[in-house]
Design a binder for these strands. Sequence first.
DNA 1: CTTATCATTTAGATCGATCTAAACGCACGG
DNA 2: CCGTGCGTTTAGATCGATCTAAATGATAAG
Lengths: 342, 342
Amino acid sequence: MKRITLLDVASHAGVSRATASLVVRDSPLVGAATRAKVEAAMAELGYVYNLGAARMRAARSRTAGVIIPNLTNPFFAVLLAGIESALETAGLAVILANSNESAAKQDGFVNRMREHGVDGLIVCPAEGTEQRFVDDARRWGMPLVQTLRFLPGTSADYAGMDPAAGMREAVQCLFDFGHRRIGYIAADTLHSAHTERLASFHDAMAASGLDPLFVRQIESTHHTARMAAPEIMNRPARPTALICHNDVLGLGLHRGLSDLGVMPGRDVSLVGFDNVAEADLVRPGLASVATEPFKVGEMAARLLLRRIERPDAEVLHETEPTYFVQRGSCGPVRSTVSAVEA
Amino acid sequence: MKRITLLDVASHAGVSRATASLVVRDSPLVGAATRAKVEAAMAELGYVYNLGAARMRAARSRTAGVIIPNLTNPFFAVLLAGIESALETAGLAVILANSNESAAKQDGFVNRMREHGVDGLIVCPAEGTEQRFVDDARRWGMPLVQTLRFLPGTSADYAGMDPAAGMREAVQCLFDFGHRRIGYIAADTLHSAHTERLASFHDAMAASGLDPLFVRQIESTHHTARMAAPEIMNRPARPTALICHNDVLGLGLHRGLSDLGVMPGRDVSLVGFDNVAEADLVRPGLASVATEPFKVGEMAARLLLRRIERPDAEVLHETEPTYFVQRGSCGPVRSTVSAVEA
DNA sequence: CTTATCATTTAGATCGATCTAAACGCACGG
DNA sequence: CCGTGCGTTTAGATCGATCTAAATGATAAG
């Protein structure tokens, strides 16, 4: 039992190999009657197209490489879902790799992707990725899209999100509730998503005529955030509101504050970032700036398809806007702060 | 600027194409001095191995297809992470597809995977997948591993989880707290994971000498579960404890009950399934039966590698045990139930 | 000195498709 | 009747590796 090839199909249909090839590729050159004959033969023999052989002659391979720093994080999983969805619609298969935030592993994966002959790459660069990464891709003629994180100083397509609008709405909401002492809980990682959000915080505060009370860096896990709650609330300059770099920190802190008997929305206002599903499940609900990773994924895929089609098109930076979702964790500043401190 | 081939490497190193081929494949046939020469040439020319060409002659393609029903669900995302991790260690690249619970799409993906010449498939079958699915794979000689869900009546390797241990511990814990009126909240989907967990619930109850109070089906979303809380608590046979098919239902119900002023762990005990990270963040924490999707993913990958290596090996069903994680949402049954109803 | 043995190396066919360029059949106008 | 043009079809070369089977050279044995 050997593999059925185009040649088998062709002889079974009484045409040449070349004609059969034209049929599988939906070429307009082939006549309707011939096409029907060949298609019947294909069905009858159970022919399976061999993309591997095709890729050798033709340039395209109908695959794209996707490198994600951490699949365990639902945020990236949804991003991946968006990428997969859009690429699949365009007929490209996704070859997946998980860099685990290791730039070295990431380099290895890029090599493997090249060996597989992918038509292009979508990468959310691992921490510590160097500019060289993007330059190499350009040198190799490999279409590349960065997503969610952008390597400064590089020139490549980018699909990300713009925290500005959501952040401004969040700060405005807090301001309207009377908050003036607002702290920022940052993550300890140092990629562009971090600095972008922090910068947008500073901008939004300035727009409301406020100075940040403090910026505190915390490792981005539920546990560390939870444990950091006492330290944050007991600092001399006690905040009345906190904005967190993401919902991992926001939810962790939510729980940490509750443990202390400090009720979010009443004793302190709390804002997260990403609006994960669970933000709506804690009590009170965690107000959060919604970002839409699925849409960002689709956007990244579209940029890649465009780049594959037109390698010399101008470099694009596209961002998805964010918006604030108010929930119970934000409320009016308490008139008698001393009562809380007692 | 054309592509560097093995022939270029060979002539640059002063050997034949065949020898160069042996070097890239780490064959022991080639001498040390020659190997060094060829490797130097490869580095100098920036040679990239062409897996597409190799796959045409050789059988293996160093890729595996993975089809998941829903990437947006963190549970599957972690499963995927486990699969990816183990396959990558073995040098196989993952071609990913998201069936979105559509059997038709799933069929399409299997075809695409065949066209790509994958060495094997790991599939968590979409709802409504027919037995034919597994039979086809066997007929095609395509190594196949089912994971998390098992098509009844089929014979193929399977990597899943065994809810029995965790379920028994959960029921035992509730029993020890004095609970006798225990209801089960099931999902509305009908695959094997559903029936397995439900069956393990019945077994565990029987082992404690109890009869299930009721089994209620709910669509598996946070929102529906939350909305169903009143109906569940107001039924004539009011439960003192609830076990949920997964944490999506568990967390949704946790919030729904809280909304009613029914406090989990005090007024009713609540157990989830999967032990997602967020189970520890709500207040009180949601007790949950821990399953380890990452390990299941690794297990599925191992099974596939074994099957690829030995196509005729006996069919294996492997399961990862589960265990109960107690948290605040489980507590002693209240002596005066009427007080709650007031 | 010849022959057998062993470890290396290699030429040439081959995998299954696509590409190029030419050939084919047919209708039409001169 | 011939040349031209158009829509189809095709033979043969080709992509870049691997495979088979044979050649090569060095060493050991007879």
